[in-house]
Design a protein around this nucleic acid. Structure first.
Lengths: 191, 191
DNA sequence: GAATTTGTACTGACCGGTCAGTTTAAACGG
DNA sequence: CCGTTTAAACTGACCGGTCAGTACAAATTC
């Protein structure tokens, strides 16, 4: 893939992410995405098979970035808190991706349900790995199952980040992070 | 409003909730809703000004039910746990409403953003009321703000319920409630 | 108490616009 | 040159919304 093609796809991802995140995949038109990206409509169909394929690639791309960051956060500082912080940072940086994900992830027979299930697993399994370490160290309250807790933590961070951006934009990222950390620390240190 | 009209609107709510929850408001057609409800297309436009107006009425209707249940749960047993339990029950009963809400609630300039902000406040303020009692009793960890925590709890319950239904349907409602309760009790009893 | 009017709820064929996707011929760029 | 992009016109299915007409029960009239 040439550098030019990569740049074009990046422009398309940026444009699609902005519009689709804000207004939903179904109500954004291909012409709008092309205009936003400053690209001809034909270019979209040269690079992607369909509108759906573009959105799917976008979902994969976003999750890839998030997973990469989580893994590198794990490398540099092996703690649940570091993971949480990194995740919150990601949502702060790509708010539209959060909106896209939240509006598609739990759509039962949606066109991306299969893809999204796998992508969700990518992220949740990273969180689960960290949580398992806590559990093995006996630092998780009894009755809390690792599988459930990691899925819940991922979802919770996602909605907290969205709620923050949409309904409480006056709060600083530090404030939000501290609130979440209080909860996470409580979980990690309980009983 | 005649009994007949009430019945028709109920049929339309049921049909619209099912389809819109599953596939999103934008991609469901008015013809599909009419067919699902066993009603002619014209009937929809006789009862509602537009497709948007139907969805908005649906959102109001659903939140009204939820708020009513939360208030009556508060009356019968004044505790945060009772509230959480009632809420989880509601999402179990109306999963499609959860899907609809989650996919529209954080859509920044969406056509229902204004309405949804108010509806969200209805629910969150009920939760906040309960939480304030905990806080006044000194049973909340310091550093946790009531406003943030109540919004987070609402969102968290929503995503946990959705995740349960979509990705972990094998878990029983009792199991899920117990997991959540562990977290809530931890929060209510911490330091 | 039959005939007629009125109001309400509902019907479904139809219209006009929208939009995903196609096509083409020409330009661009490395 | 060849892979990529452009611009613009075009197609056709689909869909939100309309509207003239139907159904029918409750009032009104004679």
């Amino acid at each position: 893939m040439s550098a030019r093609t990569t740049a074009t796809k990046q422009k398309l991802f940026d444009a699609a992410l902005k519009l689709v995140g804000e207004r939903g995949a179904a109500s954004v038109t291909v012409d709008e995405i092309a205009a936003e990206a400053g690209v001809a409509k034909g270019t979209i169909y040269y690079n992607f098979a369909s509108k759906d394929a573009l959105v799917e690639a976008l979902l994969r791309h976003g999750v890839e970035i998030l997973a990469g960051r989580l893994r590198s956060a794990e490398e540099s500082e092996n703690s649940l808190e570091a993971l949480v912080d990194e995740m919150l940072g990601f949502w702060a940086e790509y708010p539209a991706f959060g909106q896209l994900l939240v509006s598609e992830l739990w759509r039962t027979p949606g066109q991306w349900h299969g893809t999204l299930s796998l992508l969700r697993d990518d992220i949740v399994s990273i969180v689960r790995g960290q949580m398992k370490r806590l559990s093995d160290a006996g630092r998780l309250p009894e009755g809390v199952e690792v599988g459930t807790a990691s899925a819940a933590l991922f979802g919770t961070l996602l909605v907290i980040a969205l709620d923050w951006q949409v309904f409480q934009p006056e709060r600083s990222r530090d404030q939000v992070r501290e609130s979440v950390m209080h909860l996470v620390r409580g979980l990690g240190q309980a009983r």
